[in-house]
Design a protein around this nucleic acid. Structure first.
Length: 893
RNA sequence: GGGCCGUUAGCUCAGCGGUAGAGCGCCUGCUUUACACGCAGGAUGCCGGGGGUUCGAAUCCCUCACGGCCCACCA
């Protein structure tokens, strides 16, 4: 038998966390093998953090949420597999690197592609190590051997396989389209990588000969190839087909009629710039006769050569100059203030320039249809379900996905161009290279099938980082190979993530999984909120309100951080984070610590037989025992049901209330009666209940606060008879509904009310806390043993007997009885009368409410019988309380 | 222009058809031999406004107001 461990008075997280971190690591506690019943697996993939820096509180929320689910399922005997990994992070990571270079006075172009990639790989490696270390520290029981990276070798195979398959199925194509171009990042973006933010601007009314057009972007005027009016607009009907002069240049452009134009907006006439506006591009497609689009803004955001006198100016400068020139020439009719939503890059917040260029696209219609079917049929469910509608709506209106990025950090597009056939030179701009002949291959093709040449150039672009992310739930298990892992773990059970990447990531995983595996990659998606600051603002570096999870862990302990996040993780809701809430959780951890400390203090140095509930003779259980077992069952069931529906906060709340309000505040206090009494079977029974209830509580709380529970579980082990090496790997007790004991609950309820009534009386009459009272009860029928003993202990009662109300006594009215406390000389009877009047007032109010309900004939006739009965009994209780209070009050005066 | 979410105690939020809850804060006591990161007691609510359904509404429906978010090519 191990020597009993002495616990410190207050929990000190640091040494405990270090200890278990090491032990879990050594034991590979999160490891999983694809063995056993497939139906009992519980697999999920960690949303891989970008290798752009360290983890923030949002990660802590996301990761803890998953860890709670994983640990809980594992303790239910499921084969839990949680796959860790990191994401190369495409533009985001490249931007971090470019900032670093800029600080060193360098650009990536100066550095060269290979050197830049080499340096980024180094950075990514460092970042990965940091992130994985932080995940460990957070307590995440991941399956570390499965760690993956979106750009490692196996994932590269998956990316190629997916690209090739989609290409062969005609779902990937190269096309010239209007794309969202980020002038700063120097790349095209997909539609959902553009964020819209309201910007204050102007609506300039400009004279085009006899017509006036209104625009928010005068700098694109140089690229106008037409003016469009509504076909219904009688004002301009005569002008359609005529030509008007383009201001500043004098170039003549046609007036056309197009249904897109809203006659009631602005002047009713729109300048058409097909090269720089998606709508105008569409107009050109409907009216090809106006001639090819004229690109006047280049990929660098400056006016191109076609812009004549304005060439070389930035978009912003060009706008200023053009407006000034128009004004000077009297062509500016008026300027209105106007607010519109401008598209900005989701990575660098620069204004997006719509640009015509050749890019790679994934045709989405065929991919989206099964995903839409999955969500509509409920085979794929979002939690909370309110996300299903916007999600389905997005799929319904899906547009082709631009997957090529003109950056360096990412999976190189596996496409090769024969230099000869396509006339490619080192100066070729692939964005302008039309109708290329290409070969899709992972490595350089040997020879060209048309010309036999061997000079191949790989497409310089890389794939959207979300392309590899979309394959994640398959690629981490070895897809496209048919591995045992893939067969066993796919599909995973659940994906936990934030709503900001619902379309970027979740929807695309669904589509790819359904396409390549024929089955959705996960059945449930838990969509949690964002961690905000105390006042509800989004945390951001620029606001300086970012809370570092590591600092919180250092200050309060990891378990406290975890619990505080979990206690607030109501499904789908944002979390306003403040240190106050973490303090509360720290206190709760300490409460658990001290309750275990108390139990251990009351156990012998060594035991021959552990305190196992099942070994205890049921006849030894007294009221408090039956009650706490029943309450634990209730709490455990509530927590289980909550976790089942991914309501982690509700689970945390149920367990918090059980431990603190029921176990500590009542059971432990009542157990003291037997613990302080003589040695014997009663004391042993109390010890058994304490040890087993506490041990089960540790199991229930373990998913939320793994470190402290693991430590306490170990300390309790000599007494609990638990054989598991690690709590993490132990099994939680099975639900035992037989422990539910409504009678014990009712009896304890009466006792608790009586205790509270007496305590309240003591407090309000300023009875010294140490003073033990003599109490006379109107009747003791409602309080058989051991309740009387409980009452004596908890309300500090010296003697308790039955009898009529003694003179000069104060009265506490409870359902079980009225308690008279003779307090001559101690109390002021006017004060007592006032107190009773307040009580009576409250009791009458309560009675009135219930009476109103019961006296309603409709209620008696239509409410369910059980409700009516309940209300009737409530009324008689309220009635009696009023009766007894008024009688006592009458005696006083 | 669509859609979603929210509006409950001073603060942050639960509850979502049967007499209003928690944590924090506040007030009063307390070295009661696990815990002051604690214990006991207490105060505090037109459950955003209006209408409807129901025997009964914080809870369901409609509507308005005010916040917040997502989607959307009105220049």
């Amino acid at each position: 038998m191990e020597a009993k461990l002495a616990l410190e008075k207050a929990y000190d997280p640091k040494p405990v966390e270090a200890k278990w971190l090491e032990r879990w690591g050594k034991a590979a506690a999160g490891a999983s093998r694809p063995v056993g019943e497939r139906s009992k697996r519980f697999a999920l993939v960690l949303p891989p953090p970008n290798v752009t820096g360290a983890l923030h509180l949002g990660h802590a929320l996301n990761d803890t949420l998953q860890d709670v689910l994983v640990r809980w399922r594992r303790m239910r005997g499921e084969e839990a597999c949680w796959v860790p990994g990191t994401d190369h992070g495409g533009i985001a990571t490249q931007n971090v690197m470019e900032k670093q270079l800029k600080a060193e006075g360098m650009t990536r172009r100066q550095m060269g592609r290979e050197a830049f990639l080499e340096r980024t790989r180094g950075w990514a490696g460092d970042c990965k190590a940091t992130i994985l270390g932080q995940l460990r520290r957070l307590g995440c029981a991941l399956d570390w051997e499965r760690e993956a990276f979106t750009m490692d070798e196996p994932r590269a195979r998956a990316v190629f396989a997916a690209f090739k398959a989609l290409w062969e199925d005609g779902l990937i194509y190269r096309g010239e389209r209007m794309v969202n171009w980020c002038v700063r990042c120097g790349t095209a973006l997909s539609d959902i990588e553009v964020e819209h933010e309201p910007r204050r601007g102007c609506l300039w009314h400009i004279r085009y000969g006899t017509l006036v057009v209104a625009t928010t972007r005068p700098e694109t005027l140089l690229g106008d190839t037409a003016v469009a009016v509504s076909p219904e607009d009688s004002r301009y009907a005569a002008l359609v087909g005529r030509r008007v002069p383009l201001p500043l240049t004098g170039r003549e452009i046609p007036v056309i009629a197009d249904a897109h134009v809203d006659a009631s907006f602005g002047s009713g006439a729109v300048k058409v710039t097909p090269a720089h506006d998606p709508n105008d591009f569409e107009i050109w497609r409907r009216h090809p006769e106006i001639g090819a689009p004229l690109q006047v803004i280049g990929p660098d955001g400056r006016i191109a050569a076609a812009g004549g006198a304005y060439a070389g100016l930035s978009r912003e400068k060009a706008r200023e100059k053009i407006v000034a020139d128009l004004e000077a020439q009297g062509l500016l009719v008026k300027t209105e203030d106007y607010q519109n939503a401008v598209g900005v890059c989701y990575r660098c917040a620069q204004v997006i320039e719509p640009l015509l260029s050749w890019q790679w696209f994934v045709r989405m219609g065929e991919l989206a249809a099964p995903a839409l079917e999955a969500v509509e049929s409920g085979r794929f469910a979002l939690h909370p379900s309110s996300w299903a509608k916007p999600y389905a709506e997005w799929l319904r209106n899906i547009r082709d996905w631009c997957v090529s990025r003109q950056i360096w950090w990412g999976h190189r597009i596996p496409v090769w161009y024969c230099a000869a056939c396509n006339k490619i030179t080192p100066q070729t701009d692939f964005g302008q290279l039309a109708d290329a002949k290409v070969v899709v291959a992972q490595s350089r093709p040997a020879s060209c099938q048309s010309c036999g040449g061997a000079d191949f150039v790989q497409d310089p672009d890389v794939l959207d980082t979300w392309f590899s992310s979309a394959l994640w739930p398959m690629s981490v298990f070895g897809w496209p190979q048919k591995t045992a892992e893939l067969a066993f773990y796919y599909p995973t059970q659940v994906l936990v993530t934030g709503y900001e990447i619902l379309y970027l990531w979740v929807a695309r995983m669904q589509m790819m999984g359904l396409r390549f595996m024929g089955e959705a990659p996960f059945k449930d998606a838990v969509i949690h909120g964002i961690v905000r600051d105390k006042s509800g603002k989004k945390m951001s570096k620029s606001l300086g309100n970012v809370v570092d999870p590591l600092a919180m862990m250092d200050k309060y302990g990891t378990d406290a951080l975890r619990f505080s996040l979990m206690a607030q993780a109501h499904p789908g809701r944002d979390i306003p984070f403040s240190e106050d809430s973490i303090t509360g959780s720290r206190n709760f951890v300490n409460k658990l610590w001290n309750s275990t400390r108390f139990v251990l203090m009351n156990l012998p140095e060594s035991v021959e037989r552990p305190y196992v509930l099942e070994d205890l003779d049921a006849s030894r259980l007294e009221l408090a025992d039956r009650w706490i077992l029943s309450e634990q069952q209730r709490a455990s069931q509530a927590a289980g049901e909550a976790l089942e529906r991914y309501d982690v906060a509700a689970a945390a709340d149920a367990l918090y209330g059980f431990l603190w309000d029921e176990f500590c505040d009542w059971y432990v206090e009542l157990a003291k009666i037997r613990l302080q009494g003589a040695d014997g079977p009663d004391k042993e029974a109390a010890r058994t209940i304490l040890v087993s209830v506490l041990s089960r509580t540790l199991k229930l709380l373990h998913p939320f606060m793994p470190y402290v529970t693991e430590e306490l579980f170990a300390a309790l082990k000599p007494y609990s008879g638990e054989s598991a090496e690690l709590l993490l790997r132990s099994l939680a007790p099975r639900p035992d509904t037989a422990r539910r004991d409504p009678e014990a609950r009712a009896a304890m309820g009466r006792l608790m009310e009586a205790v509270t009534a007496l305590r309240s009386l003591r407090a309000q009459l300023n009875v010294p806390p140490g003073l033990r009272l003599r109490v006379v009860a109107s009747s003791l029928e409602g309080l058989p043993q051991p309740q009387r003993e409980y009452l004596r202990a908890l309300a500090r009662v010296d003697s308790l007997e039955e009898g009529p109300r003694p003179d000069k006594s104060a009265t506490a009215v409870a359902a079980a009885a009225s308690f008279f406390v003779p307090l001559e000389g101690v109390i002021d009877f006017a004060q007592e009368a006032a107190r009773l009047r307040r009580e009576l007032e409250k009791a009458r109010l309560e009675l009135a409410k219930i009476a109103q309900k019961v006296d309603n004939p409709g209620f008696r006739a239509r409410a369910p019988r059980s409700e009516v009965e309940l209300a009737l009994s409530q009324r008689s209780a309220a009635d009696e309380r009023v009766e007894r209070l008024s009688r006592t009050l009458a005696l006083l005066s």
